[in-house]
Amino acid sequence: MTELICTVCPMGCRVRVEQDEAELIITGNRCPRGLTYAREEITAPKRVLTAVVQMAGGDRMLPAKTMTAIPKEKIFPAMEEIKAITVRPPVTISQVLIEDLAGTGVPFVATGTILSDEESVNKDG
């Protein structure tokens, strides 16, 4: 038996996974997302990757994330691609920055909006 802590949300359910012949028996989850998580975590673990991206000419970073979870072993190759790019403003929230991140088929999207180089300067004076 393996005990996992479900990381889908901050609830931190302690999920038990038992192998019964070909079947996985999963208990302790408080919602259906816990079932999917435990099955995946045992067979093919995935994570949402978040990072920041360099902006051309700007002095602040753009936050971004993978649209969905990517295989755990792809995290470091993905970081290499993310560090190599520079994005030109304006960028708006949800804009795709990389179509297919590290061959995962998952897009890398902006989670913030940066309109211009001067955007970090206070608009209200």
Partner: peptide
């Protein structure tokens, strides 16, 4: 910039920004 925000309030997973 990490995710895990909003699951209770918006019923979806968001990053801080």
């Amino acid at each position: 910039i990490h995710n895990g925000f909003g699951l209770r309030f918006f019923k979806e997973e968001l990053t801080g920004p």
